[in-house]
């Protein structure tokens, strides 16, 4: 796995006929290989923007994103333009992310599956594009569908699946490509509470099995606490990192029951702390918006 560095990234959206929006303001982050980091923050604080920059879908106004091989003299790459990230050497030992690439897998909130393909063909998409031999692809797909519990649905068109099942297909599709980093933008946001809890367990298990570097955006404080070894809380206007936590719950979740962890006093204490922090931020935003409204 590679380490991921977000170096002093700023993003200003210029809107025709409006004030520029400072969606991100000097955001810096370092992720160790295999780390699972969750991102929380009030709506509009730049979470999706940050993820899109790491994925290479957006080019930041300033700063850069670097993928770094953890080996002492390993290569690294900077993210900058379509496809150029693979093998592109910018610094002596780092590659800057320049566009989307297969080493950064994406799991979208919803609606990013290919509805004209069956479940197995969706999962096989990445390896097939890479021209892998079909026997390898078949084995990978079978294994992954079993991992996410969809082996019986392999031949179904994806639109016949429930929302929770579709997100499992999305996870499997992403993993089939064996990416270095997995980026998830509210992957469980559209699911009901129960399915969501089950899926959290699946994400944790997959992380444990694959030890991928994962960034997971969520609106649920509980989910962020439960899944994130690290948790960053972002604040809006301009979008920035407000607080950072290191949490024991993800590791514990591998052995203990999720319900017990979520009911434990230290979990609840952290949850309330973060909730009130985000609450305050929202209040401040609303207050300001009101001020504008009446001013």
């Amino acid at each position: 796995m590679k380490a991921l560095s977000i170096k002093d990234v700023s993003m200003v959206f210029t809107v025709p006929g409006g004030d520029p929006v400072r969606a991100l303001d000097h955001v810096s982050l370092d992720l160790q290989p295999g780390e699972l980091m969750s991102v929380l923050g009030p709506s509009g604080c730049g979470k999706t923007t940050l993820l899109n920059i790491v994925a290479g879908f957006l080019s930041p106004t300033a700063g850069r994103v670097v993928l770094q091989d953890p080996e002492p003299d390993g290569a690294a790459s900077v993210v900058t333009g379509p496809g150029a990230d693979r093998g592109m050497i910018a610094d002596t030992d780092a590659s800057v992310v320049k566009g989307p690439g297969a080493e950064r897998g994406m799991v979208f909130q919803q609606g990013a599956l290919f509805e004209w393909l069956t479940v197995e063909k969706n999962v096989a998409f990445g390896p097939k594009m890479a021209g892998k031999p079909s026997s390898d692809i078949k084995a990978t797909v079978e294994h992954l569908l079993e991992t996410v519990g969809l082996q019986d649905f392999a031949k179904k068109p994806v639109y016949q699946l429930s929302g929770g099942m579709q997100q499992r297909v999305a996870l499997a599709r992403c993993l089939a490509n064996d990416p270095e980093v997995i980026l998830m933008d509210e992957p469980l946001g559209a699911l009901d509470a129960l399915t969501r809890e089950k899926m959290q367990g699946l994400v944790l298990r997959l992380w444990d099995e694959t030890r991928k570097t994962i960034i997971l955006i969520t609106h649920s404080v509980e989910e962020a606490l439960f899944l994130g070894e690290r948790l960053i809380v972002m604040a809006p206007r301009p979008g920035r990192i407000e607080r950072e936590y290191r949490l024991p719950f993800a590791k514990r979740g591998l052995n203990e029951s999720p319900r017990d962890i979520k009911a434990s006093p230290d979990f609840i204490e952290k949850r309330e702390e973060i909730l009130s922090m985000i609450w305050e931020m929202e209040e401040e935003i609303m207050g300001r918006a009101e001020g504008v409204g009446h001013g």
């Binding site: 994925a55 690439g101 897998g105 994406m106 990013a112 599709r173």
Partner: peptide, 18 residues
């Protein structure tokens, strides 16, 4: 075409032609 599908395809390593 929904942009997220195009993004997903690029993230899965697809080329422009693909």
């Amino acid at each position: 075409v929904r942009v997220s599908k195009v993004h997903a395809a690029y993230s899965l390593g697809a080329t422009k032609l693909q």
